[in-house]
Simulated scan of single mutants.
Amino acid sequence: MRLIFMGTPEFSVPALQALHDAGHEIVAVYTQPPRPAGRGKAIRPSPVHKAADALGIPVRHPLSLRKNEEEWAAFAALNADAAIVAAYGLILPQVMLDAPRLGCLNIHASLLPRWRGASPIQSSVLAGDTESGVTIMQMEAGLDTGPMLVHAATPITPATTATTLHDALSALGGELVVSVLSNLPQATPQPEDGVTYAPRLTKEDGRINWQDSASATDRRIRALTPWPGTFTSTEDGTILKIGSAELLADKQHSAPPGTVLDDTLTIACGTGALRLTLIQKPGGRMMDAQTFLRGFSLPSGTRLA
């Protein structure tokens, strides 16, 4: 098929590669414009942009599509059979949704209608879901409301992190979209019940509330690492970033939540406890607990907030 691909982050790259490997003609890739990144704030193209360059596919990166009639015309002139959208980052106006012969198909990282919105991967881990998946849907004007063509599930285990789930769903999305274009299944409306929304995350979402249970806190760390990242603060206000922790849900203690219980960084939660296994002090790097404690004192009885 003659396709347009629209995506930006690393999540989208396997789908682009899978479509290319399946022999589809990808006439253009749309992605977010190059932006400053890294400590040096050098201008860098998106992961999808770099992948498209490597495949020799023309790249377009408009700053906005809203009221951008020139871009609408250029998009329509590509005469695509379909546009495949995977975490592109811009809202497509109706004129663009209608331009390809088969419309625009979205690779969404959840089992719709659960977790419509911006952070489906993190939200599923944070909520304690036992499974997630990918849905290929026909795009319409509403937020992830379009009819579904196919979906596939993958389990969420007590060891699943946002990173591992991201990678699993990214690969699954590439497989599914190739299958959809081969079979063109009939789209079915999303169920009206079971709708949940995954909000856009902020850095403040990563603040640990030690009043929460150890299980809930463990899910927050696994869901929000590496971004926006989870953190806590010491009694003097020093911010400590948390990279990972070991869940000790059954540990009995009578200490107030946030109390350091021993010399292995076991922290009291509302119920149970967590042992911090990767932690980072300001200006430092993420390190294991033993290495961290050689250069930063957190004695038993210290309260974290």
Rank of each mutant, 00 (worst) to 15 (best):
A162T: 08
V178H: 07
I136P: 05
A141M: 13
P155R: 05
S132Y: 04
L172K: 06
V180K: 13
D167C: 00
D144Y: 00
V178S: 12
H166N: 12
G146F: 04
V178P: 08
P147T: 08
S179K: 14
G173Q: 09
T154C: 11
V180R: 02
L169R: 10
D167A: 13
A153S: 15
T130Y: 01
H151P: 02
A152N: 02
P158H: 03
T145V: 10
G173N: 07
S132T: 06
V150H: 05
S179I: 00
L143K: 08
E175R: 15
L176S: 05
D167V: 06
S179T: 14
V134Y: 11
V150P: 00
L176F: 12
V134G: 08
T163N: 00
A152Y: 01
A153V: 01
S132A: 15
P147F: 08
L143S: 08
M137F: 15
T130M: 08
L143D: 07
S170W: 07
E175N: 06
I156Y: 02
T154V: 15
G142V: 00
G173W: 09
A153E: 14
L176C: 05
T161G: 03
T135Y: 07
A141T: 14
L143Y: 07
A159S: 14
P158C: 07
D167N: 11
L176N: 07
L143T: 11
T163F: 01
V177R: 04
L169Y: 04
G173I: 11
P147V: 08
I136N: 02
L165V: 06
L172V: 04
T145H: 10
V178D: 11
V180M: 12
L172C: 04
E131Q: 15
I136E: 06
T145L: 10
V177C: 10
A162P: 00
T161E: 07
G146I: 09
M137R: 02
T160Q: 09
V150R: 14
V180Y: 03
M148F: 06
T157E: 11
T130Q: 14
V180W: 03
E175Q: 15
S170P: 04
M139L: 12
M137N: 00
D167F: 07
D167T: 14
V178F: 06
T157L: 05
A152M: 07
T160E: 04
T161F: 01
A171S: 13
L165D: 08
G174F: 04
A159N: 12
